[in-house]
Design a protein around this nucleic acid. Structure first.
Lengths: 167, 167
DNA sequence: TGATACGTTCAATATCAATTGAACGTTCGC
DNA sequence: GCGAACGTTCAATTGATATTGAACGTATCA
């Protein structure tokens, strides 16, 4: 049977995590690297990663940096060793939070800016009271609903509940 | 200046939404189609979509079905018309919820199953009390932390707070 | 009934992002 | 100072998946 030794089970987790992050659009090696380190008792070097996962050194380097920025990995110094070693942290809530903030936060900025600008321009247009009035007011109502939703989502994101429940 | 007519502003929103869903990994036309319909006063047909957005009929058909399943669009019958027409709904919270459930929910099932299975197998192993004990207990502790987090995340997802705040 | 207008499907293709690996700069030991 | 061991970068490549469009089934109308 497969999975009947710790090593085999680790392999399965790594494989599953890789597929997960893959289909989630985060890249396969992201999940693989974190999971490998998370299920390793000793800190791991880039070399360990390339060997264990069959990935390139460049890939390992980039992914490790990203995971470190999200607070998912921590660099560990081992005396007498020139290599960098990494170990995994387990405050998943904080990690997820930072990752989401970077991945989707950045990508909403353009839209946010557009919403603000649109609002200003619509007020202008309404004040001018020229043609297109029906179109402008329709736009305005729709934009208003989006902004309201944005506001609620933002408040939820900032709320302490998330922070508490996700540890 | 651009954006000085309702039409131009709509274009901007459609463009921005397209980029957003694109970089978020949901495909460009998803955002384009929903935004186009959301900012249209009249229900739109597949033909309208292909013309307004320059996308293929097949693309329009598939995307519209997906959006409809998520509750983002509703089919509207117009008497004397053979085409299907769609209008946008604005309960964004519900839409987002369903979309996330389908997109990420499915993709976590494999991992979930693996976690359950792992737990069972580890208990087995511990009961057998054979070799690898240190490895097994390490694995067990790490898996335990993941499962605990999964539990908290699940409870948060099911909580009423999300539903209330996201309307 | 035949002809037309639709919506759907899915294999082929185009597009985009993940991954590689060679080249480079730096640090460390000798 | 020299060579080896590392980590990093980025242009080229690969791989995944979004998108197309031709073929098809079905409903509608004359």
């Amino acid at each position: 049977m497969n999975g009947s030794t710790p090593q085999q089970m680790r392999r399965q987790f790594i494989e599953a995590a890789g597929q997960m992050t893959q289909t989630l659009g985060a890249g396969r090696v992201l999940g693989q690297v974190f999971t490998h380190i998370y299920f390793s008792r000793d800190p791991q070097s880039l070399d360990d990663l390339t060997r264990a996962l069959g990935i390139s050194k460049g890939s390992a380097s980039m992914i490790v940096r990203q995971l470190e920025q999200w607070g998912a990995l921590r660099k560990v110094w081992i005396k007498g060793e020139r290599k960098d070693y990494y170990e995994a942290l387990d405050h998943f809530g904080r990690i997820l939070r930072r990752a989401l903030l970077e991945v989707i936060g950045r990508k909403m900025e353009v839209g946010d800016h557009l919403l603000e600008e649109a609002d200003a321009r619509m007020q202008e247009a309404v004040a001018r009271s020229n043609n297109d009035m029906a179109d402008w007011s329709f736009l305005r109502e729709r934009v208003g609903k989006i902004r309201a939703f944005r506001g609620r989502a933002q408040r939820l994101w900032d709320s302490s509940i998330l922070k508490m429940l996700l540890k």
